[in-house]
Design a protein around this nucleic acid. Sequence first.
DNA 1: CTGAAAGCGCTTACAG
DNA 2: CTGAAAGCGCTTACAG
Lengths: 342, 342
Amino acid sequence: MTRPTISDVARAAGVSKGAVSYALNGRPGVSDSTRQRILATAEALGFHADRAARALAGAPAKAVGLTLYRPARTLGVEPFFMELISGLEAELSHRSYALLLHMVADREQETAVYRRWGHDHAVDGVLVCDVLEDDPRLPVLRELGFPAVVIGPPPAGGRVPSVWSDDAVSLQEAVEYLAALGHRRIGRVAGIPELAHTAIRSEAFARLARRLGLAAAPCVFTDYTGPDGARATRLLLGAADPPTALVYDNDIMAVAGLTVAQEMGLSVPGDLSIVAWDDSPVCRIVHPALTALTRDIGAYGRQAARLLLASLDGREAVGVAVEAAHLTPRASTAAPRAPREN
Amino acid sequence: MTRPTISDVARAAGVSKGAVSYALNGRPGVSDSTRQRILATAEALGFHADRAARALAGAPAKAVGLTLYRPARTLGVEPFFMELISGLEAELSHRSYALLLHMVADREQETAVYRRWGHDHAVDGVLVCDVLEDDPRLPVLRELGFPAVVIGPPPAGGRVPSVWSDDAVSLQEAVEYLAALGHRRIGRVAGIPELAHTAIRSEAFARLARRLGLAAAPCVFTDYTGPDGARATRLLLGAADPPTALVYDNDIMAVAGLTVAQEMGLSVPGDLSIVAWDDSPVCRIVHPALTALTRDIGAYGRQAARLLLASLDGREAVGVAVEAAHLTPRASTAAPRAPREN
DNA sequence: CTGAAAGCGCTTACAG
DNA sequence: CTGAAAGCGCTTACAG
């Protein structure tokens, strides 16, 4: 009826509790034949070690933590996270690790959660998303002694390994594609400037504009919401000599931009080309369907989990770049109607 | 340096460990003055009980669990869940309860997670979403002795309390509104038929059609994805005497439907009115903006958490209906261009 | 009202 | 290679 304990397994296998623990955790201290017998007995009894007891005895919690900072008004960015979490879970559950997911409404709560996790031995390591430049969470994690993996561009200092996709490469693919179509004025509706990956994209965008000799390459920052994306779009399109193509930092803003353009009487892609980043179901569903920078977010999550697990295993965890997002051309991009020569 | 334990507090306050435990947990066994002194000492030392130790000693884990069943292809339904989780966390963290969130890829995993939680004393109770008619999770939860709260319509049997919003009322509001505009042929693009709330909506829809004497009230079921919503829309609009208004069971399908209509050369709302359920940022951003059934999902989550906490406190937890979703008219609905008299 | 003790289910030195 | 024992940090009967 009640779940078997390690003592039950020990009794059934005719060994001590210690031997069972060693066998289960793959440690030296038991002969191979005994180990096999113990494992078989545990399996037969349906034994699983109690996590609380393990944690209390100082063993790894077999869990990793992830906090998600979501101010109420920015709930739109989610497709990325759901897919990321799916990828993380896939890899973690494969190794019998649990994922503790904690949503917080402000950044202070985030480090408070880390401290509680440390105190409770609740997790063995943590995954860090939405990295800021000079992120305050990193020193806290270090102080707490948590192995960590950053999901995003490698933070300065190089102390914590990261899994990232090279946004500069992706942006180059998008901008070169637009330039090849004949666009000379390309605008960018960016996300939150404090985020490390936003900074990388901004820098790459400026560099590309120079290299390709674009006539204009304006950039407006937003909070990722639809209304703010609409505002940015109006701002960009209202200028003298407005851009003929716009690259958006998320799907919701790209859709908002499409709507604004249509309201302004501009045809997409005739008068304005639109590129969304990341891709999502909405991008495929609107009309015209949006050209997007697509990546395998699930794989991204799996890779991040693998890296953290490696680090927990004591193996060296070195940052890796996953496949960059690549362009999926759809109906929202075309040559500008009246290519200019300036 | 290292976190204070209950022994540290006991020593500092000049009492036994037992006394500290009683004081902290608000139990009888210590005088009021002693209790105050102990509480003050604990506060001063920054003491927080170790969750693993608490759990092992048989005390409540101070955590509740929520599993989310997400097959990879249905990731579109998410705005609802992010807001729901925000609401849950708000109420739970207020009471120092943690939320264990576990995404699973199939239904068997879901009950497996429950069993592990039971075995590990990881959570004190669970929240159940996406309830099926005759849901297999409920008996498992019962067997495990988990207090549970259903987020959705009260399951048959009435054993587990639920927090729900009356979808029949909301649907009535939407359909009566469309009928008042002059629509006599109203179609419905529904979600997954196995879900309890889908069944409730279907039944209410049929009843309304009869009561209002609609000329047609076809309904097509889908898997909630955009492409499936598009397929359902084509099916409905391709019929002889097609509907002049369509009600969708989620935002993504409503947007997909809008696109399909436009591709077919139908104007929205001139030739076709569209209502989305639930509301979301996308609904506000597309053109025309979608009339939607809106509800306070965060409040819904807070209410669910409150109910489960009440049940964990040993108070009687009786199901409650939260405010139903109400219609937010936007530009996607209008009188049909050529109202028919049949 | 209080204190000393046992026990939750593990892990890990420590002797044999 | 194995067994008996201590200990992780709590909670909870159980005597005083």
